[in-house]
Design a protein around this nucleic acid. Structure first.
Lengths: 227, 227
DNA sequence: GCTGTATTCTATAGTTCTTTGGAATATTGG
DNA sequence: CCAATATTCCAAAGAACTATAGAATACAGC
């Protein structure tokens, strides 16, 4: 191994890089960016075996990117602080700008951004503040996710139920659909379905995670029916 | 390997992390942040065998963090653009805030920041703009480095010569010494030497790299003697 | 074209990281 | 205290990365 003078310093720096070098860990961070989760919830959300999830969480904790608390038999993890969330955002932005392969993978997975025309969190916040705007926000994640925290006023319509609950949605107003993180495919899918049926729908850019990151509040508690 | 749906996206994201996961690569990026360099110069500056340096540069290029041009038999590398430089800065800031071990390694290597009282680039720029401030800037890197680009008006006094050229420096004005990157130990050493001899000296925070990053110009060409 | 120099490519051994099975720990509820 | 559940620790196999030796390429100058 090379041994230049500043090596100890750069080795420390590299710890952050190393921690961000695994798809699984990045995925876990994105899930945690939506709020506190148990190991099992994380394991399920990331579709990674539980033991493996736990092992990766240890590494994230060793790098001080997440913290955990124990409540009864469960361990709850969360991002260490807001700074981590902001840094993740910067990383994703930086990577997206730099790697054509990433943009391609995103397009492939979510659909062409130019077609979907995502609404930014700032834009949505402004429209929420204006009672005239008449925008309807739809949370297409699971009802459980919605209950844990959602965009203020958002209606919970899990993607699986969307097809059967179209009559709850307005045909004249614009609908903004969102799901969890920036790479979640559920809201783009919902938008495509809605547009096929003649609704005006757009996804929320970056999902709930970016909504939080940009300093917006969440509302908790169930709100299962349309206003 | 885990295979959740968004895995291809996160795998791309992880490429950036992976690239930043090696002390050697981070070191090379910091050297390049001071300006264009040949493979050999990089190998020397980072004290890493040439072949190894070349191999790491390939990886940096694959991640689009650096670009290269060929001139004759030499290959010159540089950061792909300003964005990379800014991201590096954010990474270092983020890591420094998060990892106590990093702060400790920095203190160990450079000395206690509370004692050194580094001058920020912005502060220095402001004082340069004010002709009354009477600050003297000393570039303690090699004369070759100085010739490649330095803070406007900076005098070149390589650390090795400093002891013998103290009479060129003012005893009443404040001296700001700088070297290459944020973790370069040369300027803190120069500051300690100067203080021992009764001069008022402080290091430039982040060195020449951060000076550049924060949008300040460089001056090129030799300026080997004090004004 | 030939020679010398700078750099990269190819192959490989050594090291580190990830995954996973089995055991261990901690906590709740009976 | 015992059983059940959630999570972590430990260890070993497998995968990925790093360092380096030797060969190959590209170019400048003669």
């Amino acid at each position: 191994m090379a041994e230049f003078r500043e090596e100890p310093i750069y080795r420390q720096l590299a710890r952050i890089g190393k921690t961000l070098a695994s798809p699984v860990r990045l995925r876990l961070l994105d899930v945690l960016d939506q709020g506190e989760r148990t190991v099992e919830q994380l394991s399920e959300a990331a579709d990674v075996p539980l033991k493996n999830t736990s092992a990766q969480l240890q590494q994230l904790r060793a790098a001080h990117l997440v913290t955990s608390r124990k409540d009864g038999t469960r361990v709850y993890y969360r991002l260490a602080d807001e700074r981590v969330s902001r840094f993740l955002d910067e990383l994703q932005d930086f990577a997206g700008e730099r790697l054509a392969d990433l943009r391609e993978a995103v397009s492939e997975h979510l659909g062409d951004p130019a077609v979907l025309e995502p609404v930014t969190a700032g834009e949505l916040a402004a429209r929420l503040a204006d009672p005239e705007s008449g925008v309807v926000i739809v949370d297409v994640r699971s009802a459980a996710d919605h209950a844990r925290g959602h965009v203020p006023g958002a209606v919970s319509v899990p993607l699986a139920e969307l097809r059967d609950r179209l009559d709850e949605l307005p045909r004249d107003a614009e609908i903004v659909a969102y799901c969890g993180g920036p790479y979640c495919a559920v809201s783009p899918e919902a938008v495509r379905l809605l547009r096929e049926r003649g609704f005006h729908a757009r996804p929320l850019d970056g999902g709930l995670a970016r909504w939080r990151r940009t300093g917006n509040r969440l509302q908790t508690g169930p709100r299962l029916s349309a206003p």
